[in-house]
Structure formats: structure tokens, C-alpha cells
Nucleic acid binder design. Structure first.
Lengths: 117, 117
DNA sequence: GCTCCAGATCGACGGCCATCAATCTACAGA
DNA sequence: TCTGTAGATTGATGGCCGTCGATCTGGAGC
């Protein structure tokens, strides 16, 4: 088999023609990026973002029956959004009799907030 | 037509049986929630979040040809992600000859960061 | 037991998203 | 003008998302 002496495109480009300084990309961020993207994705819907906003401002446990009339979506839809927020670890719920109470988990948004700041 | 004298479910519930304190929801947040959710949605993908991370850490304009080899996706896919970030107002680009340089727009993440903090 | 209600789940629908190969568009160098 | 290249665009595909009506679950009160 013959050795391919043809230069690769990268080798063809003279060193002086670099487009910019090389970018170092630490592998440490991969797992962290996955976690933060999951949180950001959960916040990437207006209704879910407003839900978190209400829960945070209230600083306590809020009944679902108080949340439903605030939004122009059907009850199953709101329940779906609350589930998404729960799966992302942003909120948690607590059942008391017929009613369900939701609250923001402390430190849930900490990592993303720290990265943004 | 007969007048419906049947009480509505809400009226049936005695005042003493409130599930929780009523939640006030300021309408001021609606438009703001839309903008912030758009930004959060753009950050809701691991690759896009890492792209922003690299661009922010580099604190300058980075050539696309330096970004592509950092990720395990094809070049059109990365171009697609950069477009999404551009449409969300998070990054902007600048063409110089064959190369395109991307950078984070100042204040692009300001509103979301302030809300999270 | 029965009925009523709050909330979660299911099933379906339409639409958008992430990905790729293939192609297109400019620009650079010869 | 021709060739090679960087990056954007297109078209197709599979999957996930937001929404709803209908249904299910289980606790409250009779």
C-alpha cells in the first residue's frame, strides 16, 4: 500500500494564516452543561417560567387550585408543566388531602445562576 | 329560561376551607416572561450552553472553525445551533473573508440573570 | 357503601427540534 | 477564470413538546 504524501487541508494552511487564537475547551464542563441545560430547558417555556416566578415570590407552598386560574391553559396542561418542573428538580410537591402544594426547591437554580453571573 | 339557582363549586366551598392564601399574580411579568423564556430555551441545549460558555470565557470573537472540532456534531448542526443563539439575541457574528467570528452580545443574559438572582 | 372533587394520567393531534448528507454561496489564491 | 475552502442553507427523518378532552385515582363528607 502506498503512503499518502498528500498534505491534509489543515497542513496545507500555513501557520501564519490562523483565523484566531486556539480555543481551549475544558472537558470538566460536559456533565455540568447537561445539568444546567436541563434546568434552562425547563425554564424555556413562558408558563413554566411564570410558575416558578409565582412560587418564588410567594416563598411558601402554593396550592395547585390557586395556580390553575392564573393561566389560560387547561388543568391537565398545567399539571404537565408542573411535572416537567418537578422532573428538572426545580420544584417539588406535597399532598395534603385533596390538595397538592408546590414549592421551589432550595438551591435548584443555584448552579445555573452562578454560571450566568 | 330558568335561572340556575344551583351554587357553583366555588361558592359551595365554605370560606373556612380555603386551601391556602390567595396568590396575586402581577400581569406585568407576561412580556418579560416571554423574553426570558426565549433566552432560557436557547440555553436549554447542552451544545448551545457550552458554545456560550466558550464564547464567554474567551471574551472575544471566536472563529467558527475553532468551534466545530470541539463538539461531536457535524458542521451544519453547529451552524444551526449558532443560528438559534443568534435568533435569541444571545450571540452575534461578524464575517471576515472566509471566516466567521462569533461573540456574546453584552447584556444579552442580563434580564434572565437578574431574575434568577 | 356512595358521591363529589382536586389533581394526575392517558391518548391523540399538530408542530417544532436536533441531526445529518447534500448543496449552495462567497471569498481567496493562483 | 478556475479551484479550493469556510460557513450557511436545504430537505428529510425521527423524536420530543405543548395542548386538549377524557379518564383514572384517591381522599372528604355524607
Amino acid at each position: 500500500m502506498a503512503v499518502d504524501l498528500e498534505l491534509t487541508p489543515k497542513q496545507k494552511r500555513p501557520a501564519g494564516e490562523r483565523c484566531c487564537e486556539p480555543v481551549v475547551y475544558p472537558d470538566v464542563e460536559r456533565a455540568q452543561a447537561l445539568r444546567m441545560a436541563e434546568v434552562a430547558k425547563a425554564l424555556g417555556d413562558p408558563i413554566r417560567l411564570q410558575l416558578v416566578d409565582v412560587l418564588r415570590k410567594h416563598a411558601g407552598k402554593v396550592c395547585v387550585c390557586e395556580l390553575v386560574p392564573l393561566f389560560d391553559v387547561a388543568q391537565p396542561t398545567l399539571s404537565h408543566h408542573l411535572k416537567k418542573l418537578r422532573e428538572a428538580g426545580i420544584v417539588d410537591s406535597e399532598r395534603q388531602g385533596l390538595w397538592a402544594y408546590y414549592y421551589v426547591r432550595p438551591d435548584a437554580l443555584k448552579e445555573l445562576t452562578a454560571w450566568l453571573s
